[in-house]
């Protein structure tokens, strides 16, 4: 009886959060799933008609979808480890205590104050192949101008660089907070025992930072799978579909072509992809922790 009563109280206290979860998370997912089963009928003056899994079968036959899927996977395979690695490096540097560290911390935080659209536009000006700062600098050292965002071989990596410049400093904050939770005495004891810097990192820092790292990795992955603004502002999915990630393709289907059924099917595929990736990450980290 006591257990039942306390469970009810727990549910009661959790109910505002559960309601918000249902309204802002589960309901949109349900409507997206439902919407992906409908398509606009040209024969019925644009009326939405139930088409079952037709949007999905069309999607899987569409070469643009597979190209977009590959671009999305390629982007995420590089950007997630890169951002987490750089964020960790910055966090370790920010965690040091020496004269003038405040100035360096300020430098690390600067990208945080710049919004993604502004950062994209600034980088577009700097990466302009005709008169951009980047080419002026590389010309100074005798390297010929690079096309950057207008090259199908370079555009995706330019976007990775821009997103990392902006994202790494954000994720650094979480890892820095995690680092500050590690007791200093552990490092002192390890130093007395003769452990070197690398040994201290792998035996103390990394194991004790596992949870913040897991959080950062999972959240960063979810954010980067949905990365959209730089593609929208800088490349519009080009050149040659080299930056046409699933999120951008979904936007284009829904809002440019007016094909909402295809857009929602793309979003559902993206959702499954994120869930699968996050599940794998969880499993890998949990196994390591168990070991």
């Amino acid at each position: 009886m006591t257990y039942r009563r306390s469970a009810w109280i727990a549910y009661l206290l959790l109910s505002p959060a559960l309601v918000c979860l249902a309204v802002f998370r589960l309901w949109p997912i349900a409507t997206t799933l439902l919407g992906s089963l409908y398509s606009q009928s040209i024969m019925q003056a644009g009326k939405d008609v139930f088409v079952g899994l037709n949007n999905y079968t069309q999607l899987f036959r569409d070469p643009i979808f597979w190209e977009s899927l590959w671009v999305t996977i390629k982007l995420n395979l590089v950007i997630n480890p890169l951002q987490v690695f750089i964020a960790l490096l910055l966090a370790i540097m920010a965690n040091q205590r020496f004269r003038g560290i405040g100035f360096y911390r300020l430098l690390f935080f600067i990208p945080l104050g710049v919004s993604v659209p502004i950062a994209s536009i600034l980088w577009r000006i700097m990466l302009d192949p005709n008169s951009g700062l980047a080419n002026s600098l590389i010309n100074l050292v005798g390297i010929p101008s690079l096309p950057f965002l207008i090259s199908k071989d370079q555009a995706l990596w330019c976007i990775v660089a821009i997103a990392t410049w902006k994202g790494a400093s954000f994720w650094m904050i979480f890892l820095w907070a995690g680092l500050q939770d590690i007791p200093r005495q552990l490092y002192e004891a390890a130093r007395i025992d003769g452990a070197g810097g690398i040994s201290r990192f792998f035996r103390i820092t990394f194991p004790l930072l596992r949870r913040p790292l897991l959080f950062v990795l999972i959240t960063d992955t979810a954010v980067n799978f949905l990365l959209f603004v730089p593609m929208f502002l800088l490349t519009r999915g080009g050149p040659s579909y080299s930056t046409n990630v699933l999120m951008y393709e979904a936007y284009k289907s829904g809002f440019v072509y007016g094909d909402m059924g295809r857009a929602l099917a793309l979003v559902m595929v993206l959702l499954l992809l994120v869930i699968a990736t996050v599940a794998i990450q969880f499993r890998l980290f949990s196994q390591e922790e168990a070991n």
């Binding site: 096309p147 207008i150 090259s151 199908k152 519009r236 999915g237 080009g238 050149p239 040659s240 579909y241």
Partner: peptide, 10 residues
């Protein structure tokens, strides 16, 4: 997008 690609050297 095709003409942009051509402009960019495709």
């Amino acid at each position: 997008s095709t003409c942009e690609d051509i402009r960019n050297g495709v």
